[in-house]
Design a protein around this nucleic acid. Structure first.
Lengths: 64, 64
DNA sequence: CCGCAATGTAAAAAATATATTACATTTTAT
DNA sequence: ATAAAATGTAATATATTTTTTACATTGCGG
């Protein structure tokens, strides 16, 4: 599973830390997700999608 | 978080057990999800969405 | 170049999802 | 009405995500 979190986060000009606080996780969680280290919970995926101003989860998370 | 798993599963006329095996989890996992008992992983949410012939995760899982 | 902000990384703990097993209840078909 | 299938539920075990803490590296503004 890949993600466009980093790409969209940079478009919005926010840091990992800022995104993390918007979605109420730690910076390390965002960092690991950006690097595709695991599979987030649906709720987290959803919050991140909204924080990045996208409408579909699939816009941000690309499944294999 | 609510889900339409049950509704769509019945439309497709498949059992919890069949859906479970399609997405490679146990029946109890499907059962608990149908009852909104927790928050699945993104990958599982995605597999279920596809197994139910929907295209967006948000078609199946309704966030609050 | 220097210093600070942002990011990468890693180990261990905590929290949560999923599996396993087993049994009870409800639904469906005959 | 009965049997079989489907679903509900619960306890414990295992796996995975997320946190915490701490430090290292990279990148950027002055």
């Amino acid at each position: 599973m890949k993600t466009k979190i980093r790409e969209f986060r940079k478009e919005q000009k926010i840091t990992q830390e800022e995104l993390a606080s918007m979605v109420e996780v730690t910076r390390q969680t965002i960092n690991s997700l950006e690097q595709g280290k695991y599979n987030p919970s649906l709720e987290l995926a959803y919050k991140i999608t909204k924080a990045l101003n996208k409408n579909k989860i699939e816009d941000v998370f690309i499944m294999d």
